[in-house]
Amino acid sequence: MLELISYEPILKGLVVLIIAGFAFPVTGVYLLRMNLLPLRFMLMHGAILGGALSLALEANPMFGTLLTNLVLVLVLISTSRYMKSDPGQLSAFFMVVSISLAFIFIYRFHVPAKETMGLMWGSLYTLSSVEFFSAIGLSLFLFIFQALFRYQLRAIFFNADIASTSGVPESRFYYAVILLTALTVAAAMKLVGALLLDALLLLPALIASYHAKSYKAMMLWASLWGGIFAVSGFFFSILWDLPASSTIALIASVTFLIILIKHKS
């Protein structure tokens, strides 16, 4: 097993997975607490659109997905502000538009379907140096953001109105969180794929919400679970010769089930 780690692509994948595994569940807590689950679907579909566009233009798919998600988020924010509509509802519209455009691009530009569908399950071991450092940079930024604004975020997660009346610029944080989520979803798609990114984002946060006894504990546990899933998933995937992303998702799902049953009983 250790022999495999000595290969640069695998080592790169492991390093990113460990750091992202601990960092990305932070956005999972944001998604849960700010009721942004529909937004996540829009970002996943947006990432497929970005990936298809990048493949059509022979550009880097990770940056294509990242850019598309950023554009989508900016359009969503301005539209919801202008129309005074719920961003969650509008995101459903953008989700449909994204996936339809993605398939139009795939069809018109003869993008190999297999490569596009590769976005569904990620490609952990094909990270370029730029992608490697971008994912690590984003993970570190997430940690710093959470550490610096933990009190403001806690107030917003408790109640947006109360946060506002406590002097927290709630709407600024809301948009910052959406933006960070967009970046995280795009990065997570490259690592574990569109279909399995919840294993790194949502499941750790969900599990933590079942047993954490404070906000601080929830953030720490979500991060810890994410790290455990990432590391254990990586090594078990090598041990059993399985895809890393699926193994991570499977371990996260089994843990979720056990914690859920324990919580309910």
Partner: peptide, 18 residues
Amino acid sequence: GVKFPITAAEVVAIGLTG
């Protein structure tokens, strides 16, 4: 109706945010 895991002391500390 808040179901978020947050302690009573953490709720009170929201008053000190900022």
